[in-house]
């Protein structure tokens, strides 16, 4: 399961917003922090707003703020807004031969593990992991 660029940007952005609940962050601010194109990121944030995860804030200093439920929203909920999860490459791309089918079965195993992992991690869990890793890094 290879995530596309937009999906990765969405995950970074949602984590950034959820870590600062209530705070408005502008597209330019997040784009600069992660070294990505603001134009590209704007489309991603707009989709997250359509999904009810972010809310657009108008006016001076506007941008977006997090309005999702970090304890309920999983990484898969975000990914599904940007990727076609079912009928992935293993089912559509491989040749219909014995070798193709065997390789597709292996690829499908990997995909299923990846999906289960993304489904089991909420934003709140991700934020705790970030905090824990940061603590370990500071202690080291």
């Amino acid at each position: 399961m290879k995530l596309q660029m937009n999906t990765t940007l969405a995950l970074y952005s949602v984590a950034e917003f959820a870590a600062n609940p209530g705070r408005h962050l502008s597209t330019a601010e997040i784009a600069a922090r992660h070294g990505v194109s603001a134009h590209h990121l704007a489309k991603v944030l707009s989709e997250l707003a359509r999904a009810g995860i972010l809310e657009s804030v108008r006016g001076v200093g506007g941008g977006y703020r997090f309005v999702g439920n970090a304890r309920r929203l999983t990484l898969m909920d975000v990914i599904e807004r940007f990727e076609a999860i079912d009928g992935g490459p293993a089912k559509t791309r491989v040749p219909a031969t014995d070798i193709g089918r065997a390789l597709a079965a292996i690829e499908s195993e990997i995909d299923e593990m990846a999906k289960a992992t993304f489904r089991s991690i909420t934003l709140a869990t991700l934020l705790r992991l970030i905090e824990r890793q940061s603590r370990h890094a500071s202690a080291a």
Binding site: A116, T122, T125, R128
Partner: peptide
């Protein structure tokens, strides 16, 4: 792996 409820719980515990 489809037991998302308990899987999420264990994940939330680190």
């Amino acid at each position: 792996r489809d037991n998302t409820l308990i899987l999420s719980f264990f994940r939330s515990q680190g």
